[in-house]
């Protein structure tokens, strides 16, 4: 039986992941202490999102992610969908900006301005709606290509690279969907375009999840090659993983579309 302490201990400690989560939580707390007042629910959403991303990478859960296909799919559901979804839903930009030291806030206007201009162009390019949607679905397909998945699960460096790409892409996509408040660098899409984008990313995810679920062959040999966390029928493991890729992942689009509509109605109500 695994104790709570063993559960909390990272299976594969990653300093960059630990520091990123610490920085995300620390900046938000600093912002709150400097007077930013996002409200209870946005703060809860933010910390839950960061906490989920930390929990699936820096606790014993990560062990199961590495040695069970279904647990790996749940890890990516948290890293690419639910975690970033909750972070972006909180729209923490103003709180995080308040938490930054003044010198860092002034950086884009200082001698490093050209670098920030380049970053801005790159950021706006990847946040172009079709590119953002293409990348969102593309990364899921890419890392689930059996040969690529094999290498990514075999090499610890590729494993972390895969998880970083999923987390960053998730943050970019859901940020684009929930962007609101003071206008920043992110393109501001109309509610209709946001909902269209959410609808467009659903069918490819459903198709991939259904293909994995109903496939009669063992697609991801790496879990047999490296051994599974506990004895489980490989096809059952694959089917559960397929269902996670299929149903909750696609449902997130529906939930996001309802939230986008709710924001729109709220805005209309305020105007009236």
């Amino acid at each position: 039986m695994i104790t709570l302490v063993e559960w909390l201990r990272p299976w594969e400690p990653s300093v960059p992941v630990f520091l990123a989560c610490l920085l995300a939580a620390g900046l938000y707390v600093a912002g709150l202490m400097r007077g930013a007042s996002p409200g209870f629910w946005p703060a809860l959403s933010y910390f839950t999102g960061v906490g989920l991303m930390y929990a699936v990478t820096q606790t014993h859960y990560d062990y199961f992610s590495q040695y069970l296909f279904s647990a790996h799919r749940l890890q990516h559901l948290m890293l690419h969908h639910l975690g970033p979804f909750l972070v972006a839903l909180a729209m923490p930009a103003t709180v995080l900006a308040a938490g930054l030291p003044a010198a860092v806030r002034r950086l884009p206007q200082g001698p490093m301005a050209p670098l920030f201009r380049v970053l801005r162009v790159v950021y706006r390019m990847v946040q172009q709606p079709f590119i953002a949607g293409f990348l969102f679905v593309g990364f899921i397909y890419f890392w689930l290509t059996p040969d690529i998945h094999f290498d990514a699960m075999l090499s610890i460096d590729l494993y972390w690279f895969m998880n970083w790409t999923m987390a960053i892409d998730g943050l970019l996509f859901w940020w684009l969907i929930f962007e609101r408040g003071g206008k920043g660098v992110t393109p501001r899409l109309s509610p209709g375009r946001r909902i269209l984008l959410l609808a467009l990313i659903m069918p490819p995810q459903i198709a991939l999840g259904a293909y994995i679920t109903f496939s009669g062959q063992n697609l991801f040999e790496i879990y047999d090659v490296c051994g599974r966390a506990f004895p489980i029928d490989p096809m059952l493991d694959q089917q559960i993983g397929g269902l996670i890729t299929w149903i909750p992942a696609a449902m997130m689009s529906v939930v996001a579309a309802i939230i986008v509509l709710a924001f729109r109605l709220e805005k209309d109500h305020e105007k009236a």
Binding site: Q66, M153, L154, A229, F230, P231
Partner: peptide, 8 residues
């Protein structure tokens, strides 16, 4: 070697 084992 990125492998594991478990017991029933």
């Amino acid at each position: 070697y990125r492998a594991t084992f478990g017991y029933d």
